[in-house]
Design a protein around this nucleic acid. Structure first.
Length: 425
DNA sequence: TCTGGGGTCCTAGGACCC
DNA sequence: TCTGGGGTCCTAGGACCC
């Protein structure tokens, strides 16, 4: 018996989360918007059936959506993140070997399981649905790529009840023939277009290409995809979360920003947020990068896009130090007279806080333990009393650059004041 | 007025070394 | 016209994922 991977993927996850706490949404088309209520990033099955595309700018379709009775939500990541954790912990009851692949997907290693795999997967589905209210589909395969493909078929192909098994070679070719090459995990738009020029349109055709051809055109990652489709595992299950190698905080503004003060506040806010993430994974950053841009869709307006980075003398997770570095970069980049749309901060050159290299030139800071205690104290207060209970003054108070979120549902599961209310009688 | 955010990996080419 | 050979490291850009 070989390896068996399952991919469990929540159906229309964000839309499903909204539905769990609002039964009146059953059967209704739902869309969820990106940050700032910009684009449509999630759709319920009913919304997809109406032909509402992914990534469409909301403001262009707002009237049509409301006319069709579509329920529209701002994204509510407090809710989605918490529901995701519930789904993952439920899945964890069925195997200790689980990789949380994204907010709504997990790979499970089901190798060596006795009995009927399809029935086992069906039981996983039922349990997740009963315990969390979230519907999932499950694909089974001897490699992650085939499990992904099986999952897609489980969702799209009727008559499979949300579970599809591609672990055996039986019927595999027939299923591969039904999947477009661009729908293979790891084959994106560009590669799909390139393959199309060679007449390669289905997963089956792709799986029959020579290794040399694939490596030449799609590099080694493409070669791994090829082998995985042929049933040869190349991509392992990663059960332990690995620390990030870079951390980003960036966001569009709710409205154009024109003053240096607002720009600096926004940059400081992102630095603070990125540095919190950095400390949470117990890392230090060697380099900070600040970027900003105007609204590229407004072709009539003057455009400015700029970014620059600065490498610290010693890697750090001390917010005031990163604020000083990042704001000095911002001051060099910001140009008066532009209407900015977005700023971002990236932390690079990350290393674990306990393995950092010392420097011959800069002796260890006498107050480094004091700095660490200060950050630790602030992080604890904010964990207990809520984000931004204690925050740098540089991040401002009024936040005129903050994002729009006109249609957010309550944070049903993470906020006492927003718990769902049930009336009896 | 309005168009998302956050990541990873690979390769080519330049800088630099002996 | 010709002007070595081989290696490492870093970065930018491109591709992919959700």
């Amino acid at each position: 018996m070989g390896t068996v991977f399952a991919l469990a993927d929540c159906n229309n996850f964000y839309a499903s989360c909204e539905r769990v706490f609002d039964p009146s949404l059953a059967g209704r088309p739902i869309v969820v918007l990106s940050n700032n209520d910009g684009c449509i990033i999630a759709r319920s099955a009913e919304a997809k059936a109406l032909g509402i595309g992914m990534g469409l700018p909301f403001f262009q379709y707002e009237k049509a959506l409301l006319r069709h009775g579509v329920a529209v939500f701002s994204s509510n990541y407090a809710l989605y993140g918490d529901m995701s954790a519930r789904v993952m912990s439920t899945l964890g009851r069925f195997t200790p070997n689980l990789e949380t692949y994204s907010i709504d997907e997990a790979f499970l290693d089901l190798s060596g399981l006795p009995g009927d795999l399809t029935a086992y997967a069906a039981r996983i589905r039922e349990t997740v649905l009963r315990w969390t209210g979230i519907p999932v589909s499950i694909g089974l395969g001897p490699t992650k790529t085939l499990a992904k493909l099986a999952n897609r078929l489980a969702k799209d192909a009727p008559g499979h009840n949300g579970v599809l098994d591609l672990t055996g070679p039986r019927d595999r070719e027939a299923f591969l023939a039904r999947v477009a090459v661009g729908d293979i995990w790891g084959i994106g738009r560009r590669h799909a277009a390139r393959l199309d020029r060679y007449g390669v349109r289905t997963a089956l055709q792709f799986s029959r290409l020579s290794r040399d051809f694939v490596q030449k055109h799609l590099t080694v990652t493409g070669l791994h995809t090829l082998l995985e489709l042929q049933g040869v595992p190349c991509i392992d299950l990663e059960t332990a979360p690995t620390p990030k190698k870079s951390i980003i905080s960036s966001r569009s503004f709710g409205r154009p920003v024109t003053t240096g003060t607002d720009m600096r506040e926004a940059v400081a806010w992102h630095i603070t947020r990125a540095t919190e993430k950095l400390r949470r994974q117990k890392s230090l950053a060697g380099t900070i990068l600040v970027s900003m841009q105007t609204n590229r869709f407004l072709t009539g307006e003057p455009q400015h896009e700029a970014s620059d980075s600065l490498t610290l003398p010693m890697p750090s997770a001390y917010t005031p130090e990163l604020l000083a570095a990042g704001l000095s970069l911002a001051d060099r980049l910001i140009r008066p007279g532009y209407r900015y749309k977005k700023v971002g901060v990236m932390l690079l050159g990350l290393e674990a806080e306990d393995t950092v290299q010392g420097s011959l030139l800069a002796p260890p800071e006498a107050d480094s333990s004091r700095r660490r205690a200060l950050m630790d104290g602030i992080d604890r207060i904010n964990a207990k009393w809520g984000r931004e209970t204690v925050r740098p003054a540089a991040t401002g108070l009024a936040r005129p650059w903050g994002m729009r979120q006109a249609r957010r549902s309550p944070r049903y599961t993470t906020c006492w004041a927003e718990l769902p209310l049930v009336r009896a009688g």
